[in-house]
């Protein structure tokens, strides 16, 4: 029981990162390998704001979100859109975007290494305990989880119940057809990429309240996010959330029952199962 609750609380943060990535990949068609760096950068921003400006991390989201939106919009329009235009087919865009986002990944990581060094950082926010069903959990974890639920819920309502959200989903289904019904595909793609960045950055802020972070941990999170996205099915917000919770529980179970050093092995075990049996994702339909 304890494992399941801890796993779900951890899964909340994973869900945000993965939802951010699944929107970026599903709509803007960019496999953003620098997503982990967005997360870490947001961790550092929150840390800095909390320590020197005394800004509450939860309120800090409202400052970080617009910054992440502008930054990701700029990255998409300046760096990635030219690649989308030049690509002759899907495979070429895939290779190009993978290489370009690798470049962004290392550039950001390098800048953060120069700025903060390789040490681990953490700060103390709401680190009191809260009891659920007889076991104590960190209050910061619970607050982060609730905030993650709120953000994902809002996003889901936006995507399914608003006009702009519908056009975002239309581009996800078929960019060419979306263009035919007077949707500005380039703009919606840029918007989706920026929105995904915001969700990931929010995940970083929440993660930083209870997690020890350093400048070079981005890649590990990118990998976990990618595996969650594939598990949940590309572009599927609901699938990503459920896959994130499964991954959170699986990791916590491995760490407590076997060895904390084997969490990646647990992630990969799930990944291999998915690749072998359901490569289209947990809820994806078989194509052809």
């Amino acid at each position: 029981m304890e494992i399941i609750i801890t796993g779900i609380l951890l899964g909340g943060a994973y869900a945000l990162i993965a939802v951010g990535l699944t929107i970026q990949y599903g709509v803007a068609r960019i496999m953003n390998l620098a997503t982990g760096e967005t997360l870490v950068a947001s961790c550092f921003c929150t840390f800095w704001m909390f320590n020197s400006l005394k800004i509450n991390p939860i309120l800090g989201i409202f400052l970080i979100a617009p910054a992440a939106f502008i930054l990701n919009w700029a990255i998409y329009s300046l760096l990635l859109l030219p690649l989308v235009r030049r690509a002759k087919n899907k495979a070429m865009l895939e290779v190009d975007s993978i290489l370009a986002t690798f470049g962004i990944l290392f550039l950001l990581e390098g800048l953060m290494l120069v700025g903060f060094g390789g040490e681990y950082f953490s700060y103390s926010f709401l680190s009191t305990s809260y009891t659920i069903a007889g076991t104590a959990y960190g209050l910061n974890r619970i607050v982060a989880f609730l905030a993650a639920v709120l953000i994902t819920g809002t996003l889901y309502v936006f995507l399914t119940h608003t006009r702009y959200g519908t056009s975002v989903r239309a581009v996800a289904v078929d960019p060419a057809a979306a263009g035919l019904v007077a949707i500005n595909v380039d703009r919606v793609s840029a918007f989706a990429f920026a929105l995904g960045g915001v969700v990931t950055a929010a995940g970083g802020t929440l993660l930083s309240t209870f997690y020890t972070f350093n400048a070079s941990m981005g890649v590990v999170f990118t990998m976990k996010a990618l595996i969650i996205v594939i598990m949940g099915g590309v572009g599927d917000v609901r699938g990503a959330v459920i896959a994130a919770l499964i991954l959170g529980i699986a990791e916590t179970a491995t760490a407590t029952l076997i060895d904390p050093g084997l969490t990646i092995a647990a992630t990969y075990f799930l990944f291999i199962l998915i690749l072998l049996f359901r490569p289209q994702g947990l809820f994806g339909r078989q194509t052809t």
């Binding site: 290392f106 390098g110 120069v114």
Partner: peptide, 20 residues
């Protein structure tokens, strides 16, 4: 030593945009 990742980043971007 701290700047080697920046070099990698620049190299990747250079490859994609200038010498595909």
């Amino acid at each position: 030593p701290n700047h080697s990742s920046i070099l990698l980043g620049i190299a990747f971007l250079l490859i994609v945009y200038l010498i595909p």
